[in-house]
């Protein structure tokens, strides 16, 4: 079931990224294509088989996992910038791009790299599970590493959450309001991921579900806004032709 969820998410995200190529070539909102492309790469790197292939090609030291973390940071940063600008959430925009946001990003990155270097990471393994199993010290380090990796996305998600909740209640096109609801749900899921250390290991599947719910909500939410724009353009051209007649 988890495998299906992973590959479905990859397919959805990849298709949307591919669908955005023409508009990216025309120069419309290139960073949006970037967000989808980075997310596709992130999902690819979080699935066992492609992870092992890529990491082995990179030397088998799990450097691909570190790469995955920064790909996620990049995607969530651009997503935060675009969404806060689009929805007029000035406070969130300042928080993400301002000194606080940069400080959080820098601190998290330093911790992430430091913990990574402190571990003996040889031997490709998705989710660093083999590294975690080496000894108690490695187990703790992998936990810290994971927590640091989830901290920055949670920071951005929390910054966006109030604006999304407001947008759901606003007088906006229905599709945009549904999209805002999905983005808010994704934000909640990302924030919930901070609780992973206290989730008992029997409920390990819950972690996957939360992670992929977050990704799917974000991707589908963004795609819906795009769909709403296409729809409104069609409606306005139809109106123009009908008045011209």
């Amino acid at each position: 079931m988890i495998e299906t969820l992973q590959w479905t998410t990859l397919a959805v995200c990849g298709l949307i990224a591919a669908a955005r190529i023409p508009s990216a070539l025309r120069g419309e909102n290139r960073s949006l294509f970037g967000i989808f492309a980075l997310m596709t790469l992130a999902i690819l790197l979080s699935i066992q088989e492609p992870y092992l292939i890529i990491d082995r090609a990179l030397g088998g030291t799990n450097i691909a996992n570190l790469l995955l973390r920064f790909v996620i940071f990049g995607a969530i940063f651009f997503l935060g910038v675009r969404v806060s600008k689009g929805f007029g959430a000035d406070a969130a925009y300042r928080l993400i791009t301002g000194r606080t946001g940069m400080a959080v990003l820098l601190a998290v990155s330093v911790v992430l790299v430091a913990v990574f270097l402190a571990m003996d990471t040889t031997g490709s393994s998705a989710g660093l599970s083999a590294v975690s199993g080496k000894d108690d010290r490695h187990y703790a380090l992998v936990e810290y590493y994971g927590a640091a990796g989830r901290a920055y996305p949670a920071f951005v998600a929390l910054a966006l959450l109030p604006a999304m909740v407001r947008a759901v209640q606003d007088r906006l096109p229905v599709l945009v309001r549904i999209a805002a609801g999905l983005l808010a749900l994704g934000g909640v899921a990302v924030t919930l991921s901070l609780l992973f250390p206290v989730i008992p290991s029997e409920l390990g599947a819950a972690e996957f579900v939360i992670n992929y719910t977050a990704v799917l909500c974000y991707v589908v939410g963004l795609a819906l806004i795009w769909a709403a724009r296409v729809q409104s353009r069609r409606a306005s051209t139809a109106r123009k032709t009908s008045t011209e007649m």
Binding site: V83, K85, F87, G88, L172, I225, W226, V230, S232
Partner: peptide
């Protein structure tokens, strides 16, 4: 105007 801004940034 708000909707236009959303289109501009996320459309």
């Amino acid at each position: 105007a708000q909707t236009e801004k959303i289109w501009e940034n996320l459309g």
